[in-house]
Design a protein around this nucleic acid. Structure first.
Lengths: 146, 146
DNA sequence: GTATATTTGTTGCAAACGTAACAATCCATT
DNA sequence: AATGGATTGTTACGTTTGCAACAAATATAC
């Protein structure tokens, strides 16, 4: 009595499923690295990395750029502010917005964490093989445009 | 006074970041579809799809296969059991494990939802273009092996 | 054969999450 | 300049999540 109800859908070949598994696996491993190093959560790491790259942004900017919910951003910003890794400067023209920048301490930690990120990606590229890595990258790039 | 602290890391070109954004976008859109159709949550959909494909599995099997935490699986199984979409059968040899299978009702809904999935993927392939879609798929496939 | 370790699945609990409501501010139309 | 609407960021609240502890059962070691 076979219990195989002739599968209509093969998850292993289903793109959303594949994408999710790959992203989850990578994200989890990478998160374990910077968590061990700094204790940052994922949203906090994202805010740090975004500010490290762009220098000065508002909370809305960060949310738009990293596709995070604004409450997530708000809480991550609070946490980083508590560490003195980030400071707020109110805009003189529009007093709703606050410009966020990393402090010297924040930049120092950003540099260390960015290095961890680059190392991680390099190992990933080696594990996957450069040609497949680039292929995957090209596919993902096409994705962002569509 | 430039506020650009020479970014060490370009998030847009960072593989884990790209993977996450793509996966999140796709997953969110697809989830909206089957949520509207059936009210299933993401973990519930995953359990349903996994059982629909493999017929009979234990909770641990499902967790391992779909990379979900065992508590997530446990709760999704409870929810599907509450809908009468799934039934448990205790193993006669090892009384810890329970074999999970879809009921007739569960299979009926699985078929409908699998069709939605295939439609979604077909549209995705059209949007992306077949060649890039396949390229992305090849990259993801390499991923799973490593 | 008993003690110890491992595995399977569930539950308590605290942390994290998103929705919605909110205060504060700015903009647009009049 | 005033009312209505939009935008920015925070907070309150109910839900979801994962870690840890757990009970039950099996496997392993002695």
């Amino acid at each position: 009595m076979a219990d195989e109800p002739d599968p209509l859908l093969s998850l292993e070949q289903f793109m959303p499923y594949r994408l999710n598994r790959a992203a989850e696996t990578v994200s989890r491993r990478f998160a374990a690295i910077y968590r061990r190093h700094s204790g940052l959560t994922r949203p906090e790491w994202r805010v740090l990395a975004t500010l490290g790259q762009y220098g000065c942004l508002t909370a809305t900017d960060i949310g738009r750029h990293s596709a995070m919910h604004k409450t997530k951003v708000s809480r991550a910003v609070q946490a980083l502010e508590g560490r003195r890794w980030l400071k707020r400067q109110s805009d003189s023209k529009d007093r709703r917005v606050e410009h966020l920048t990393l402090t010297a301490l924040g930049q120092k930690n950003y540099r260390a964490l960015a290095q961890l990120a680059l190392d991680f990606e390099r190992r990933l590229r080696e594990t996957l093989g450069p040609e497949l890595f680039d292929q995957l990258n090209a596919g993902l790039e096409a994705f962002e445009e569509a």
